[in-house]
Computed example of a mutant assay.
Amino acid sequence: METEYLNVGRIINTHGIKGEVKIKRITDFEERFREGNILYWSPGGTGEVTRLTVEAHRIHKGFDLLKFQGYPTINEVEPLKNGILMIHKEDTTPLGAEEYYFHEIIGCHVYTTAGHYVGEVKEIMTPGANDVWVIDRKEEGDALIPYIEEVVVQVDVSKKTIIIEPMEGLLD
């Protein structure tokens, strides 16, 4: 059976000369980057996979900086740029009620409470107090839906559907 992976970040650049990389995090679980944890790197999220052990983690200017064991200088981490960091799917943490993994939400079809089709969730941003779901609306451009109780009425990940009650101006 082939191992399934879940994306937790993208290496967007190197940082300094001592082997640190700058990560765009795509997980709510900061503990994924804890010292000693195992991550898997792929140049594009498929194909070749390299196992990496986190040696150090810190936050700098809103980004995660990681250092991996066996990668002591910028020369070793330079080839990792633009690659995807992943975990084994079976290493996920159980979630509480009304909590979802990004991979469960991305690809869901969004409808209003009136039954109007809005589009498909293509990305999730984590800018601060709440997540923001980016909805691909094909003809109209993207819509940004805050994941808050007043807007998101129902999520059914098994049916890949989400029902929203749009606030005034949300879909304009």
Rank of each mutant, 00 (worst) to 15 (best):
T46C: 01
N75Q: 10
N37F: 00
G44H: 08
R58Y: 13
K24E: 15
P79L: 06
I87Y: 00
H103I: 09
R51C: 10
A97M: 13
K61H: 12
A97S: 14
E30C: 05
S42P: 10
G45Y: 02
L66A: 01
I87K: 07
R25F: 03
Q69D: 00
L85R: 02
V77E: 02
L66K: 01
E55R: 14
L85Y: 02
K24I: 12
G45L: 03
Y100Q: 09
T50R: 15
E104C: 11
E20W: 15
E104R: 12
I26K: 07
G45S: 01
H57V: 11
Y100P: 05
T46F: 13
G47T: 09
H103M: 03
N37V: 00
S42A: 11
G96Y: 09
E76V: 00
N37T: 07
Y101T: 08
L52Q: 02
Y40E: 04
R25Y: 03
E31H: 13
I38E: 09
L85K: 00
A56N: 14
N75F: 10
F102R: 15
H15N: 12
P43G: 10
W41D: 02
T53R: 14
P94L: 13
I26D: 09
H88R: 15
E35Y: 04
P72R: 07
N37Y: 00
A56V: 03
H103K: 08
V21E: 06
G16H: 11
R58G: 04
F33D: 03
E76C: 00
F33N: 07
G96R: 13
K18N: 15
E78I: 07
I26Q: 11
P79E: 10
K22D: 03
G44E: 14
T92Y: 04
Y71P: 01
G45T: 06
E35K: 15
Y40G: 04
F33E: 04
L95W: 04
F29E: 12
K81P: 00
K22G: 04
P72A: 02
T73D: 05
T50W: 05
L80N: 01
L80M: 09
P94M: 10
Y40F: 15
I84Q: 05
K67Q: 10
G36C: 11
T73N: 01
H15Q: 12
M86I: 03
V54T: 06
V77L: 02
F102A: 14
H88M: 05
P94A: 13
Q69T: 09
E104G: 10
L39P: 06
E98V: 11
H88E: 13
L65W: 01
G47E: 07
H103T: 09
I38H: 03
T92L: 15
F68A: 03
E30D: 15
T92M: 14
H15R: 07
D91W: 13
I87C: 00
H103Q: 12
G96K: 14
Y40I: 08
H60T: 08
E30G: 03
F68V: 07
I38Q: 11
I17Q: 14
G62M: 04
G70V: 07
G19S: 09
H60N: 09
T27E: 03
I26R: 10
A56T: 06
D28Q: 09
F63K: 05
T53I: 14
R32Q: 08
E20I: 01
L65Q: 01
H103D: 11
R34P: 00
K22M: 12
T27G: 05
P43M: 08
H88V: 08
E48D: 12
G44N: 15
K67D: 07
V77Y: 01
N75E: 12
T93H: 11
A97L: 14
G70D: 05
